[in-house]
């Protein structure tokens, strides 16, 4: 009997612990819910699902911007889901997200034309660069981007591709297409199917070339033994847009919060923060303000 008691008592203890934990957390939300009406006279805190690319999260930009936005919009709770641009857009098309912050202009126009996204605004840009081993075995340093891609293909250099339908991957495929090359034919071409950070690490291990956005590269610079080889080409501009999911097509969308977020992203105050972001840590801005 004694053992049984011990077992029951300990189970009960765990259960009570859980209950207290749960009630703590509900108290927490209640406080949050109660505190907010006093300031805004709105009873409910609504979730806003933001799907975005890994680059905005991994660079740390959203950790600065989201608290600012939530401070402004007291009754909005932003849920940031950082995925590849392909998935981010797809979630918009399915109405699973409220607002999108992405960087694949051609694919974005498609979902605006299909009526899934509205109110699309340009926010900022940074640029893509080609990085590779400092020894540069394929000899592409300083070349134009298309010529560099051709050279990499001709020399069958190790090229590490995202392969995940992200904005960067779409950009890379666009460049290959413009020079009419199917890169997968090459033995040196590999797809990781992972985020930019992981792909850079794999490229560094394999001493391969990779097309990356500058922000992620700068954030990873100390970890990866790769140098910038090609930069500054007009073709390499990486433009970010924000847009809200059309509430007329998807009725569960939080359109109020989404519209507020779009406005927030292009507001002067936010643009200033974007401009300053990263200067302290990296000596240069990671993103450049670029509204219409």
């Amino acid at each position: 009997m004694k053992l049984n008691k011990i077992f029951t008592v300990s189970l009960l203890a765990v259960f009570l612990f859980m209950m207290s934990a749960c009630s703590n957390s509900t108290n927490g939300t209640n406080e949050k819910n109660q505190a907010k009406p006093d300031e805004t006279n709105t009873a409910e805190v609504k979730d806003l699902i933001l799907t975005t690319t890994t680059s905005t999260q991994d660079s740390g930009l959203l950790d600065v911007l989201i608290p600012m936005f939530e401070e402004e919009q007291k009754n909005t709770n932003v849920k940031t889901i950082a995925v590849g641009t392909g998935q981010a857009l797809e979630m918009g098309v399915k109405g699973e997200a409220d607002v999108l912050l992405v960087h694949a202009p051609d694919a974005e126009e498609e979902i605006v034309n299909s009526g899934d996204a509205i109110n699309r605004k340009r926010v900022m840009y940074n640029d893509y660069i080609i990085v590779g081993p400092s020894a540069d075995p394929a000899g592409i340093k300083g070349m134009e981007v298309k010529a560099a891609f051709k050279q990499l293909f001709d020399k069958d250099a190790v090229f590490i591709s995202r392969g995940d339908d992200s904005g960067t991957h779409k950009k890379e495929l666009g460049i290959w297409k413009s020079i009419e090359i199917t890169p997968a034919d090459n033995k040196g071409y590999a797809e990781t199917g992972q985020g930019m950070g992981n792909t850079l690490q794999i490229a560094a291990e394999k001493q391969g070339y990779v097309l990356t956005d500058r922000a992620t590269y700068l954030a990873q610079k100390d970890n990866v033994d790769l140098d910038i080889l090609v930069e500054g080409d007009d073709d390499l501009l990486n433009i970010y847009h924000v847009m809200q999911v059309n509430h007329e097509k998807h009725d569960k969308v939080n359109s109020e919060g989404a519209e507020a977020f779009v406005q927030f992203m292009i507001a002067d105050k936010t643009q200033k923060v974007i401009e300053e972001f990263g200067k302290e840590d990296f000596g240069e801005s990671l993103f450049v303000p670029y509204t219409e």
Partner: peptide, 24 residues
């Protein structure tokens, strides 16, 4: 969970995120 900061970020998902950020 979506690895949302302050809401659904747990130890395992933060480890994945920190690795992809390069913060080994």
């Amino acid at each position: 969970g979506g690895n949302i900061r302050g809401e659904t970020r747990i130890l395992t998902t933060s480890i994945v995120m920190e690795v992809s950020k390069g913060n080994f």
